[in-house]
Design a protein around this nucleic acid. Sequence first.
DNA 1: GTCTATATCGGGATAGAC
DNA 2: GTCTATCCCGATATAGAC
Lengths: 222, 222
Amino acid sequence: MHRGGPKSEETRGRILTSAMDLFRSRGFEQTTMREIASEAGVALGSAYYYFESKEALVMAFYRQAGDDTHKLIVQALSEEKDLQGRIRAILDVKFRYFHPNRKFLGALFGHAADPENPLSPFSEETRDTRETDIRHFEDALRESGAKIPKELKLHLPRLLWMYQMGLILFWIYDRSPSQTRTGQLIDKSLPVVVNLIRVARFPLLRPIRKMVADLLDAVYRV
Amino acid sequence: MHRGGPKSEETRGRILTSAMDLFRSRGFEQTTMREIASEAGVALGSAYYYFESKEALVMAFYRQAGDDTHKLIVQALSEEKDLQGRIRAILDVKFRYFHPNRKFLGALFGHAADPENPLSPFSEETRDTRETDIRHFEDALRESGAKIPKELKLHLPRLLWMYQMGLILFWIYDRSPSQTRTGQLIDKSLPVVVNLIRVARFPLLRPIRKMVADLLDAVYRV
DNA sequence: GTCTATATCGGGATAGAC
DNA sequence: GTCTATCCCGATATAGAC
């Protein structure tokens, strides 16, 4: 898998950087492998020597982003106590990190929502990143001291991950300047989410709680 | 816009039919414009004369599907009284109509979730279909006799449309035989949705109701 | 092992002759 | 309105320089 010396590593890095720059400024579709190669100062064949396809370049970016944000999130979580602050911390890391890549992620979603597509956030190939991501929410819940109804305990982290994916989708589509609407959406929806988790324990809502638990079991059953 | 005689109309129709057949059996990506043209018995250039791109063929399909399901939904709604039955009627029409096209829609989502992409369900180009769709849920609510808190009245139809989009996305990803899991998801989630609408009026939930209304106003404000 | 140069192919899209 | 020829690009492959 191209395990070479520092020279090799450097070329590989240069190709990846060029690709990211072009993806960011022009989007995924518009960028050609020929441009990436020439921008990186290598021949087309070399680009293919290091990355077997245009998609492979994106997978490399995913992995990189996953590793980077993981470290940032672990750090951020250690500084927050209550549930809302802890979820917020995860979201802040994500949105700050992906901010320069919004256009690129947009174009990417256009190639990634197909379940057969390896780049999909739900695909087999991206499972590792996804599971790590879900575990962040598990951590956020566990150390927060929030009382979670036992029926919901199992699936709540995954549900929060879905909530996060929804926010990211909204953000990608958000045309408001500096994506201020997404900022509002987070500010206003996060308290709702946290409050829903809190009131879920109320006896009055027991029937709905049961229905939701039943629903989640059916959906996530293996 | 290629307004020609009946001959032209017939050729156009033949190309669209061939495309749909091939999209269904092979998916969007795998089908080539050359195949579509040859299947329709015309030259490649001719296919491009009628449809300026492969995507344009899909837009034509969208419009067709929108018109067809609209008629079916109006009919189905006239036969249902209570809210759950009425929402269910809309969903049933949709899923029955799209059933033969699941694979095709899947491949399509892989090219349609990009906000810049005209095929996106959120794009400017698909606005008409989307607004008609949302109006179906408005109708379902209005004649159902369900009491809707006034803060939620404005945005609830759009929210139900989002619920429907979520179900369709789940269905596209659903690998279970005959998509039985999607069936379960609908059976179990629809009562939750209807019950949430019902309990939303409870005084106990007033704070959350206010927060949600505030959230919706911010998100859908123009 | 690293990289260039070049050829070839499939497929979306276009130009221009008829 | 229809066809042929052509272009561009992603992808694959290969020969050979260093």
